[in-house]
């Protein structure tokens, strides 16, 4: 029999964090949403009227469409590369001698410890026409070198992958920790090769970690601002850099708020689709494996 205080306890315990979320996240978000419905005039500033004119502007503007497509192209490509690099990396570190695991994890997390500006300046020095990468390519007589690397989408993807890989590694690492080592040995004893063990036993079991890592990388890359601005330059506009421009340069805050709202909605939609179509299916498959069903 639950007493009154039993029922109240969970609510009371979650109240502080709920309040923080409401105050620091929901209220400002509602403010941004409300701001996006106002008009703007250069001399009068933000206008008091309400309307959807900003959204209409955005959806009929090819420049915005281009930026939105670029944002998602960069985020998608970054996620893909991070998975291809991060998942095997976590597996390799997991199989290392325990003495080496700590230092190796530290190396992997390294990029997260460096300020984003410093990291991007480093890439600028490396990727420039006279930078180290091009000097190496020229010395190796690669035809066509030096290449133009800076101010391309490739540079942005490289910069983002550099900092996002640790997120995949860490989240897969956490899943690997829960993996029962007996499973691998059982698979080997039944004649599975190393590759088969990895793809048919390990990978399905760490799928939750892979999915979570992918989602984090995608969301953070789609909303990244500093790296596209520094390595991509002004020509390669992404939605976050357009938002920055509207807020700080043209001072058209309502349009900036509309941009921010659309970006958030788009990321939310992509996230929902991802959980619906990919994650749930993958987890269901995992469930079947665990229950001895067809793998």
């Amino acid at each position: 029999m639950m007493t009154r205080s039993d029922r109240l306890t969970p609510a009371l315990l979650t109240a502080p964090s709920a309040l923080v979320y409401a105050g620091a996240l929901l209220v400002p978000l509602a403010g941004v949403l409300a701001l996006s419905l106002h008009g703007f005039d250069f001399e009068k500033g933000v206008l008091p009227g309400w309307g959807l004119a900003n959204y209409q502007d955005l959806f009929t503007d090819p420049l915005f469409g281009e930026a939105l497509a670029r944002t998602f192209r960069i985020a998608g490509l970054t996620t893909l590369i991070c998975l291809l690099v991060g998942v095997p990396e976590a597996w390799i570190i997991h199989r290392m001698d325990p003495r080496w695991r700590g230092p190796m994890l530290l190396v992997v997390v390294g990029p997260l410890l460096v300020s984003v500006v410093v990291r991007n300046f480093g890439w600028m020095v490396l990727l420039g026409t006279n930078g180290l990468v091009n000097q190496a390519l020229t010395a190796l007589h690669v035809p066509g070198a030096p290449f133009r690397l800076m101010f391309t989408e490739l540079a942005v993807v490289i910069g983002l992958v550099h900092v996002m890989v640790p997120l995949v590694v860490l989240s897969v690492w956490a899943s690997l920790g829960r993996l029962d080592p007996v499973l691998e040995r059982a698979a080997t004893s039944l004649g599975a090769g190393r590759f088969t063990v990895f793809t048919r036993v390990v990978l399905p079991n760490v799928m939750p970690g892979v999915m979570a890592g992918a989602l984090m990388v995608f969301c953070l890359s789609a909303s990244a601002f500093a790296t596209p601005a520094m390595l991509g330059g002004k020509r390669l506009k992404v939605v976050s850099s357009m938002t920055y421009n509207e807020f700080l340069n043209t001072l058209n805050w309502p349009l900036g708020a509309a941009l921010a709202t659309v970006l958030m909605a788009a990321i939310l939609l992509a996230t929902l689709l991802w959980t619906r179509l990919v994650e749930r299916r993958a987890l269901r498959r995992l469930g079947e494996v665990a229950q001895g069903g067809p793998a």
């Binding site: 420039g128 930078g131 101010f151 330059g233």
Partner: peptide
């Protein structure tokens, strides 16, 4: 134009690297 660059810091970096 290689880049439209407003930041004086990046501008000097590009001059210094010969970019």
């Amino acid at each position: 134009v290689l880049a439209y660059e407003s930041s004086p810091g990046k501008m000097s970096e590009m001059f210094q690297s010969g970019e």
